[in-house]
Deep mutational scan, measured.
Amino acid sequence: KYLVLALYDYQEKSPREVTMKKGDILTLLNSTNKDWWKVEVNGRQGFVPAAYVKYL
């Protein structure tokens, strides 16, 4: 498993997404889509914009 760092705040806009705050450390679950990565944060799984996170 990889960890990624939230570069920006992101507010979920659909039930498939998750909210994150700048500085959050997220567990990367799937990065096959170049635009949306599946992550786990605070016990929830969902998608965030790939451009908003970077590998640690």
Rank of each mutant, 00 (worst) to 15 (best):
L7D: 03
W37P: 02
G46C: 02
K1N: 13
V41N: 12
L7C: 08
W37D: 00
A50I: 04
R16C: 15
K34H: 11
L28H: 02
Y52M: 14
N33C: 10
G23Y: 05
K13D: 06
K21I: 10
Q45N: 08
G23P: 00
N42P: 05
W37K: 02
G23N: 07
L3E: 08
T19M: 04
N30V: 08
Y10L: 01
E40Y: 06
Q11N: 14
K34D: 14
Y55L: 15
Y2G: 13
N42Q: 10
Q45C: 10
K1H: 14
Y10T: 01
V48E: 00
N42I: 04
D35V: 12
Q11P: 07
S14G: 13
I25P: 02
K54T: 15
T32N: 13
K22P: 04
F47T: 03
R44H: 08
N30D: 15
E12Y: 05
Y10K: 00
K21Q: 10
W37E: 01
T32H: 12
T27G: 07
T19P: 07
D35N: 12
Y55G: 09
V18K: 01
A51F: 09
W37L: 08
K22G: 06
N42E: 11
V53P: 00
Y55E: 14
Y2A: 14
A51M: 13
Y10E: 02
V53L: 15
K21D: 04
K1P: 15
G43Y: 05
T27L: 15
P49D: 01
K38M: 15
A51C: 12
Y10M: 01
K13V: 10
K38Q: 14
L26I: 08
Y52G: 09
V53C: 11
R44N: 07
S14R: 09
L28N: 00
V18N: 04
T32I: 10
L56G: 05
L7T: 06
N33K: 06
K34N: 11
Q11F: 14
R16E: 14
T32Y: 10
M20A: 02
L28Y: 02
P49F: 03
V41Q: 10
S14D: 13
K34W: 07
Y55K: 13
L56T: 08
L29T: 05
N30E: 15
V48W: 01
A6V: 09
I25R: 06
F47Q: 04
R16W: 15
V18H: 03
Y55I: 15
L5K: 09
Y10F: 08
K38Y: 15
L5V: 15
Y52D: 05
V18E: 01
G43Q: 07
A6W: 04
E40V: 08
L56A: 07
G23L: 02
K21T: 09
A6K: 02
G23V: 01
D35W: 12
V53F: 05
S14E: 09
V48P: 00
N42A: 11
W37Q: 02
E12W: 05
W36N: 02
N42T: 06
V53N: 00
N42F: 07
K34Q: 11
V53Q: 00
E12C: 10
V48T: 01
T27D: 06
R16S: 14
N33P: 05
L26H: 03
Y55C: 15
P15W: 09
L7V: 09
E40I: 07
V41I: 15
V53M: 05
L56I: 14
N33T: 07
Y55S: 13
S31W: 15
K22Y: 04
